[in-house]
């Protein structure tokens, strides 16, 4: 499907492919046999009104929904060609490979250093010096190093909201994932901190495949390469972000992004 969205010169590798993906909260069906292809090293924005299923869709990619009772996904999610909904998939390894950042910053009640080191200690056996090296690398990668290098032993919770969110991004990328899932990562922080996160995501695009759920239309149009519009559990339109925001092909998409509903 993605091939039809791209110019002939732009052949992108598909990192994630959802096939006939449905989702249920108990008896309630929230997603309906959706198909979506997410290209590698690009930012894909997922937009739609509240309750349309965009966060639900995102939460399937690292099977985080399995932490809750009575929730189940049907269909397939292929990451690098492997169906991650298969029972044999190592979920811990999946969640390392597919990192997630949430709406509200979730720093652990420990030092800045330990917040970042936490994930890598969980996944890798490393010497102290290697951990210190990787912590610095992750903090630099999250554009936070210069602001915290002199207070690595200070509490992560003492940082500002925007810094806490970048700390969470540092903690996630320290585990060396392939994919970053972000569920409204800037809705709880101020506009300046938001711009820093957006700049950060644009720089991280070279290393990671990024999927971001956002209610902020301007954010989706500023930073994403592709946009998928969800409505009532279905993907209404998936196209290049430029096309979605200048000339969407579906009337419902147009009505949503121009603020006529939602």
């Amino acid at each position: 499907m993605l091939d039809t969205l791209l110019s002939p010169k732009e052949k992108l590798k598909i990192k994630i492919a959802a096939r006939d993906l449905s989702f249920f909260y108990g008896d309630h069906q929230a997603l309906f046999a959706n198909n979506l292809e997410i290209p590698e090293n690009r930012i894909t924005a997922v937009i739609g009104p509240s309750g349309c299923g965009k966060s639900t869709h995102l939460r399937i990619y690292n099977r985080i929904f399995e932490l809750y009772r009575d929730q189940r996904a049907e269909g397939e999610v292929l990451i690098d060609g492997v169906n991650i909904l298969d029972r044999n998939v190592d979920v811990l390894e999946l969640r390392r490979k597919v990192g997630m950042i949430f709406q509200r910053p979730t720093p652990f009640p420990m030092s800045v250093f330990d917040n970042v080191a936490y994930g890598m200690r969980l996944h890798f056996k490393l010497r102290k010096s290697e951990i210190a090296e990787r912590v610095e690398g992750a903090l630099r990668g999250a554009s936070l190093w210069e602001e915290v290098k002199d207070k690595l032993n200070g509490s992560g919770i003492a940082l500002s909201g925007g810094q806490q969110q970048r700390l969470c991004i540092a903690r996630t990328i320290a585990a060396e994932p392939d994919i970053l899932l972000l569920d409204e990562p800037t809705s709880a922080i101020d506009p300046v901190a938001t711009l820093k996160i957006e700049e950060l995501l644009l720089s991280l695009r070279k290393r990671f495949t990024i999927v971001i759920v956002t209610h902020n239309m301007q954010q989706a149009s500023r930073i994403s390469d592709f946009t998928a519009f969800f409505y009532k559990g279905r993907i209404v339109e998936h196209d290049t972000t430029t096309r979605i925001f200048t000339n969407p092909s579906n009337k419902k998409t147009e009505e949503y992004i121009t603020g006529r509903f939602g």
Partner: peptide
């Protein structure tokens, strides 16, 4: 208002 789509056009 940063209009988009038909409004922008």
């Amino acid at each position: 208002y940063q209009p988009v789509a038909g409004d922008l056009r």
